[in-house]
Computed example of a mutant assay.
Amino acid sequence: MTSDLARTLAEEAEAESITTFVAAAVVTDADLILLVRRKPDDYMGGLWEIPSGHVDAGETILDAVRRETLEETGLTVASVDRYLGHFDYENSRGTTTRQFNFAVTASETGPVILTEHDLYQWAALAGDLPGITDGVREILARV
């Protein structure tokens, strides 16, 4: 995955007046995908999602996907393998956030150490995935 792609994605979003970015990682282990659940008192509490977080100022989208995966799960991203697409959503401030989603390979798939979520699960992609947004569901269909 190249930094050119990350720069192009950011430029395209900014051209659409979207300036808040989130980077997200689809972490797999065999036929399973890692989902984490937002704490009940968080914005969109109880929602299951893929590890993700804000892209900080001066940070690339690819750097953020590595950092956020480590911060939220304790897992180290060995490689960012491919771009899976993006979706936009209204954030807690009422503005639009663009979430960029990447398939990644983790150095190891455990132990998962949560810092910002209350639960995690390794879910079968072929199974029913309740409690996720349509945006995440569409991204997972591309894995």
Rank of each mutant, 00 (worst) to 15 (best):
T109Y: 07
T133K: 06
T20L: 09
V27I: 14
A10S: 15
T2K: 04
A103T: 10
R67K: 10
L47K: 09
D42Q: 05
N91M: 00
T73D: 04
V77N: 06
T69R: 01
A126G: 15
A15M: 01
G85T: 08
F102G: 02
T109N: 14
V136G: 00
L62Y: 06
A25T: 14
L9V: 08
I132H: 02
F102N: 08
E59T: 01
M44K: 09
G110E: 12
W122P: 13
L34F: 02
L125E: 10
Y43E: 02
E138P: 12
H117L: 02
E108W: 02
T115R: 12
A25P: 01
Y43S: 00
S3L: 12
T105N: 08
G58W: 04
V104E: 07
D118K: 00
N91W: 01
L47Q: 15
L62K: 09
A57D: 14
D31Y: 12
S52D: 11
Q121H: 04
K39F: 00
S52V: 06
R38S: 03
A57N: 15
D128I: 00
S52C: 14
R82N: 03
Y43V: 00
W48Y: 13
S52G: 15
L140Q: 05
T28S: 07
L140T: 08
R66E: 14
S107H: 13
A64N: 06
A25K: 12
Y43Q: 01
R66K: 14
L129N: 09
A78T: 12
V77L: 15
Q121S: 05
T97A: 01
N91A: 04
T2C: 03
D134M: 11
M44W: 09
L34H: 04
I18T: 08
D29A: 15
G127S: 11
L70Y: 12
A13W: 09
V26A: 00
T19K: 13
R7G: 12
Y43F: 14
L140C: 06
L35M: 12
R137Q: 07
D63V: 06
P40K: 00
D56N: 14
R98D: 06
A106G: 11
D56V: 03
D81C: 02
P130H: 00
L62V: 10
